[in-house]
Write a protein that binds this DNA or RNA. Structure first.
Length: 307
DNA sequence: GACCCGTGGCG
DNA sequence: TCGCCAAGGGT
């Protein structure tokens, strides 16, 4: 196992991407923001938005002092805007209950909105240097191939995977942090889901999946439907609200019979997109109701708006 | 465990 | 072109 660690960490030292949240000067808050933004969103799309957030809200209290809608608007098109809402809620908890400083243990981090098992471990490790088993999709895939001999990890995280991650984790704090980051990076750059670059892999010689002749996945991942779904319409409604600087009358969401032209510029464009997309008034109503229930939209005197 | 939640780039 | 995929979390 020593050889495995040395090979992967050595590779990481040479090939790691120079990401701003890996700067030793990056604050724990900056690392938390990056981790939440990176949930299901590629690095290249996160970078510019993360920089804006750090400049605008360098401390949790700065974000907590603003309406949640500002976080949602600044989230832009990263997707899953409820993450912005939860990050804002987390900032409020940190400001109110932790004197504005991030808690530094996995257990306490887990108490923050939007922070689950992965993010709590990642922040404990990368922001505070603690020994924590980080298990994300990259690490799961590397473990599945390298140790399990399978093309892909199980559909959902299993107890066996948690146990394996703990067993592979070096005892030393600093070494464990490097190991977590290195395996994650290996999965992101080399041991990728679709076409792994085994020729560039530092541990190809030890890979159980290669040794087994690279067998195909034992199951077929079910793709998530998108075209024509309520999710797509919710996204289009959110685009309208982000573009609007004042409440948008509810009637404008009911259908294209209303004067889209009443809103000029980007709001009008997003309204037209929404109306072209929605299957009918019932789907629009369903989408709006869902957003209201989730707190991503609120009723204002003039209509619908960000919270 | 099943299901829901956005978005855009790439093979 | 179109399905797959990306540093998950909550219910």
């Amino acid at each position: 196992m020593r050889d495995l660690h040395r090979a992967v960490v050595g590779w990481f030292a040479d090939e790691a991407r120079d990401l701003p949240w890996r700067d030793p000067a990056c604050s724990p808050w900056g690392i938390l923001v990056s981790e939440v933004m990176l949930q299901q969103t590629p690095v290249v799309r996160v970078l510019p938005v993360w920089r804006e957030w750090m400049e605008r809200w360098p401390h949790p209290a700065d974000l907590a002092a603003e309406p949640a809608g500002e976080a949602v608007r600044a989230w832009g098109r990263l997707g899953y805007p409820r993450r912005a809402l939860r990050l804002h809620a987390a900032a409020a908890v940190i400001a109110r209950e932790h004197d504005g400083e991030l808690p530094d243990t996995e257990e306490s981090l887990l108490g923050l909105p939007g922070v689950g098992g992965y993010t709590a471990a990642a922040v404990a490790a990368f922001a505070f240097g603690r020994r924590a088993a980080v298990v994300d999709t990259n690490i799961r895939r590397v473990h599945a191939r390298l140790v399990g001999g399978e093309a892909l990890p199980a559909p959902s995280l299993t107890a066996d995977e948690r146990r394996l991650a703990g067993e592979l984790l070096p005892d030393d704090d600093a070494a464990s942090v490097r190991w977590n980051a290195a395996v994650m990076e290996l999965g992101a750059l080399v041991c990728t889901a679709r076409s792994p670059r085994c020729d560039a892999c530092p541990v190809a010689g030890a890979c159980a999946w290669r040794a087994a002749g690279e067998p195909p996945p034992s199951y077929v991942p079910k793709g998530q439907a998108w075209h024509g779904t309520d999710r797509q319409v919710r996204g289009a409604v959110m685009a309208v609200l982000r573009a609007a600087s004042r409440p948008v009358p509810r009637g404008f969401f009911d259908g294209p019979t209303n004067a889209d032209a009443a809103h000029s510029g980007s709001v009008g464009i997003e309204l037209a997109r929404l109306h072209a997309l929605a299957a009918g008034p019932e789907q629009l109503e369903r989408a709006v109701a869902g957003l209201l229930a989730d707190g991503l939209a609120v009723e204002r005197p003039g209509g619908l708006a960000l919270p």
